[in-house]
């Protein structure tokens, strides 16, 4: 290494990454085994990905547990009792409840009795009838869409109300002071506690459910957007200013894009909370949606429909999160790669 060759002159200088190519080539020949990647941590804590095989094993265990429980023991009730009062309705049950010393499983078992957890075969046939004929004159797709459409509206308004307030709070200390009190006051209130209030105030059905979902998501979005803006490093702000950005350009080109990862995480959390809140709200406040379907199935003692409904709710919850993760990897590829 002598003379000018050593000096990386402007014209010919290569990028740092390009040097040492020969070295990486020799290493690339030897494919590292999985165990080579391990670092010293507690157990596997350092591993980024979970192994998909174990997710499959976990699913099989759950299904197997279900199969064994229903097949071997008729878990958890007495199947004979189910045959005695096949026509019993909710009203009968309520009347019995009033008389019974305790209104619990024993009263239910005496009167109606289908306390046997549905077997997988029963559940499967209930699911197929649900997807072909529907339940109570409503197809399953109508119910799913009714639930989803509520969540979409709730999340939409929760986001477009919450994000600007959060951004404003992140940027301005007066706004922070002003909004901090309501945010901290309302955020800890479980949305479900507000169902009676919202039904009496706004009416039943979507009139109560959508505001409830806005309530469930808006605080999360405010906090996410605020954190996103506050995370912007001083260097980025200063760099933008010294490159000639105006205040407005700083906001739109630097602060908001910089806050996107946090906002997206907020959307993921809020969507999970909304989905859970919604189904519970539908149990009492609406006549469409998956929660309402489960409630009606209860009235008809259709445990199989209830189980199918629960499974559908779980699957949709997982699918929504997968979709958001996929969108995140496309829209915010720099996330976690600082």
């Amino acid at each position: 290494m002598t003379g000018n060759e050593d000096l990386p002159l402007i014209s010919g200088s290569s990028a740092d990454g390009a040097s040492g190519g020969a070295l990486t080539a020799t290493f690339a020949d030897k494919k590292p085994k999985r165990s080579d990647n391990k670092t010293v941590t507690f157990g596997d804590a350092g591993a980024v990905r979970s192994l998909p095989m174990w997710s499959v094993i976990s699913l099989i265990t759950m299904i197997g547990g279900w199969y064994v429980a229903t097949k071997a023991w008729g878990f958890p009730g007495d199947f004979a009792a189910t045959q005695e009062n096949p026509d019993a309705t909710d009203k009968v049950l309520l009347a019995a409840c009033n008389r019974a010393e305790e209104c619990g499983r024993s009263a239910y078992t005496q009167l109606i009795g289908p306390t046997t957890f549905p077997s997988m075969r029963d559940t499967w046939s209930a699911a197929s009838s649900l997807f072909t004929d529907g339940f109570q004159n409503k197809t399953i797709w109508t119910q799913i869409w009714a639930s989803l459409w509520r969540v979409i509206r709730g999340m939409f308004f929760g986001t477009i109300i919450g994000v600007p307030i959060g951004l404003f709070m992140g940027l301005n200390s007066k706004a922070r002071g002003f909004f901090d009190t309501p945010v901290e006051m309302f955020r800890p209130i479980p949305p479900l506690a507000l169902i009676p209030l919202f039904i009496l105030t706004f009416g039943i059905g979507d009139k109560a459910a959508v505001p409830l979902l806005i309530f469930a998501s808006v605080w999360i979005m405010i906090i996410a957007a605020r954190a996103g803006v506050r995370n912007a490093s001083l260097q980025k702000v200063r760099a933008a200013y010294s490159l000639g950005a105006s205040k407005w350009q700083l906001l739109s080109r630097v602060l908001i894009p910089n806050a996107l990862p946090e906002i997206f995480t907020g959307i993921r959390v809020a969507l999970g909370v909304s989905w859970g809140t919604l189904v519970a709200a539908e149990l009492v406040g609406t006549d469409t949606g998956l929660g309402a379907m489960i409630f009606q199935a209860r009235n008809f003692s259709r445990l199989d429909i209830i189980v199918v409904g629960i499974i559908i709710i779980a699957i949709i919850g997982v699918l929504m999160d997968l979709l958001l993760r996929f969108l995140e990897s496309i829209l915010i590829p720099w996330q976690g790669k600082g």
Binding site: K236, A239, S242, G244, N258, W334, G338
Partner: peptide, 20 residues
């Protein structure tokens, strides 16, 4: 009296815009 584009700044790190 304030930052301006006639005085560019290079920081130690973390001042690039990762989303671009």
């Amino acid at each position: 009296n304030g930052p301006s584009k006639d005085r560019g700044m290079v920081f130690q790190q973390g001042a690039l815009f990762e989303w671009q």
